[in-house]
Design a protein around this nucleic acid. Structure first.
Lengths: 179, 179
DNA sequence: CCTCAAGTGGACGCGGTGTCCGCTTGACGT
DNA sequence: ACGTCAAGCGGACACCGCGTCCACTTGAGG
């Protein structure tokens, strides 16, 4: 059964309103009621689709993440297959920093505590890095270690301290090269 | 002006009750009221000392962290001064894993979102690692990167996945050795 | 023993969450 | 066109935790 027309319209309104509010104030400062009001729908309608803020943020991120995931799987080197692992990891880091720079508020919105790790996207990054780290001992654990510096809280904290995205990317590339 | 006798008694009761509740259920599942009731004091008394759960967790961690900080500054090598930086970093990692294993619930309690980075302890670890990484380019940023894998959310997630502390320590030592 | 500031605790108001149910609307069959 | 009815809608409601406030109690010093 396809989605009804009014339902589709409302979903679009909700996502649009949420994106605007998230980027304007940060996810933590936005209530479900805010989103509902800004979208011009009732709270019940909102909850019907999205059980909490995290679900909305995940939906918003989905598209951007999918694009990067596609590039990792089938794009040109060094992001896609073909380049040596260290270079691919560095390219992955650079792409993730770019994504964080644009959407860190959203990513932060997806994390109610440790829920970041249970999301599908994290699993994808994890598998990707794990494959790249196949040479090292215990790639399974190393993957988590290598992904840790991409935590959005850390990213926003560094940015707030005045650290530029370029410096962050450079440090991560350094780390990737050490492999 | 020293602390009044009843005040000291209540503070001890509060900390004891909070530690018990935190380890029993995890910090997120404990309300201020829970702590107050378990300690046998009123909510007002609780708030007088500790503005939120994070403050209580910080107080509880304080002692353990201080001990480690002391060892880093004046203890025997490889934790204390004297050993080569890579070894000291590995020892630091091992000590932190130990601390996380015993008190991850507490550490997690100190973090309302990104507040982990604003706490005094984080600044200490940061400076320590920064000094150890003095050889590398941009140690200032690298310090954050090297501390990221110690995020308590990540640690608990790894443990929940069945990863042993030993494997985590081993991977981190590997990382330290790469420097 | 008196005084009074420090300390106490519970009642209160606020704001956000999630649910529930009567009403509305759009899709599909006739 | 029109009727039917399930999917969709939305706001009222109850609940919960937070943080504050203030009248009362307690203990330390004179």
């Amino acid at each position: 059964m396809p989605e009804r027309a009014d339902a589709a319209r409302n979903r679009a309104k909700i996502l649009e309103a949420a994106e605007e509010l998230f980027t304007a104030r940060g996810a933590a400062e936005v209530t479900m009621e805010d989103i509902a009001r800004a979208a011009g729908v009732g709270r019940g309608t909102l909850y019907r689709r999205y059980p909490d803020r995290a679900a909305i943020a995940v939906a918003l991120l989905d598209e951007h993440e999918r694009r990067l995931q596609e590039s990792l799987l089938r794009g040109d080197p060094p992001l896609g297959p073909g380049a040596p692992p260290a270079e691919r990891l560095a390219a992955f880091y650079a792409a993730m920093v770019e994504l964080l720079e644009r959407h860190a508020h959203l990513v932060l919105g997806t994390e109610v505590g440790h829920s970041r790790f249970t999301t599908g996207a994290y699993g994808f990054w994890r598998t990707h890095v794990k494959v790249l780290a196949a040479g090292a001992p215990d790639p399974d654990v190393l993957a988590d270690v290598l992904l840790a510096p991409l935590a959005p809280e850390l990213y926003l904290h560094q940015r707030a301290r005045g650290v530029t995205p370029e410096r962050i990317t450079a440090s991560l590339s350094e780390l990737a090269r050490l492999l």
